[in-house]
């Protein structure tokens, strides 16, 4: 038996349902941002951004943790981008699809699903103790790099695969070598996709706590070398909130973190659009 429903009403009903779903998603997102900013922004001032924490973060600012976050994220990206893009190029351009590539791909996908605290533990055992790097930017950067590597490989691979095959053919037919084809035709066209992967990686690195606390430590000093221990904003937030040191400063840190991520995303996509507009 089929109940007759006026198509117009049906249409209206599903439009309303889908609108509701979207609305809920957007509402939750804005609620979180609004809540954090409302509780955090009153604390944020120029002094908060430029002064070092005093008394474990009860007073003073968060300058050293900003430095720590930037340094750690940069390091992770600098390590993971060449490795990830290189692997993606190898997998897509230099090998044919076979069981080896499938195993590599499967492995990297599994890697993406591993909880970050496991990466933290792995980094702690390998870099901090076994290799003797101690709690340091280097240990943390390497750990984060491994954590974001699968994302970068995956997105780069997809970006490279979506470059039209005809471009490669043209490059070869104009006397291009494989390497020239990759660097002059494939990579420039795949750049927006690759950049998206890197930006996702930046986002994950900035927000990461578990993997960092195990590997980069939680020193409140401004890092002076790759071997200094350093605290990132998210670790700072965690410690302030967990130890009940200062909820106000914890939310202040969270607000700065959220704004920083927003700015990075907006900036990256604007730059990319500008770059892409030129020839498309």
């Amino acid at each position: 038996m089929r109940i007759y429903v006026d198509p117009k009403i049906e249409q209206r009903f599903f439009r309303a349902v889908l609108w509701l779903f979207t609305g809920v998603t957007v509402f939750i997102l804005f609620f979180i941002i609004f809540y954090v900013l409302k509780r955090g922004l009153p604390v944020v001032s120029l002094g908060f951004l430029t002064k070092n924490p005093v008394e474990m973060g009860k007073a003073g600012g968060i300058f050293s943790t900003i430095v720590g976050t930037v340094a750690l994220t940069l390091l992770a990206i600098l390590i993971a981008t060449p490795l990830g893009v290189g692997s993606a190029i190898y997998l897509t351009e230099y090998t044919r699809e076979n069981w080896v590539t499938r195993v590599i791909r499967f492995g990297s996908e599994c890697l993406a699903g591993i909880p970050s605290i496991i990466f933290g533990l792995f980094g702690f055992i390998l870099f901090v103790t076994k290799l003797g790097l101690g709690w340091s930017l280097l240990s943390g950067g390497l750990t984060l790099a491994f954590m974001i590597l699968p994302t970068i490989i995956r997105t780069s691979e997809e970006a490279i695969q979506s470059v039209p095959y005809a471009y490669r053919e043209v490059s070869f037919s104009l006397g291009g070598t494989k390497w020239q084809t990759v660097t002059r035709v494939v990579l420039p066209s795949a750049l927006p996709g690759i950049a998206t992967g890197v930006i996702l990686g930046v986002g994950r690195s900035i927000g990461e706590t578990a993997a960092v606390i195990f590997t980069a430590g939680s020193s409140l000093h401004i890092p002076t070398s790759l071997f200094s221990s350093s605290r990132t904003m998210s670790v700072h937030f965690y410690i302030l909130a967990r130890e009940g040191i200062s909820m106000a400063n914890a939310y202040g840190t969270a607000a700065v973190l959220i704004i920083a991520i927003l700015i990075i995303n907006v900036l990256a996509y604007t730059l990319m659009n500008k770059f892409m507009r030129k020839y498309c």
Binding site: A166, V170, S171, S173, P188, Y279
Partner: peptide, 17 residues
């Protein structure tokens, strides 16, 4: 390939100037 230039069925300008 430099001695034998080739034009394809669909024009494929590269995304450059």
């Amino acid at each position: 390939r430099r001695r034998l230039g080739m034009v394809f069925a669909t024009p494929v300008p590269l995304p450059r100037s």
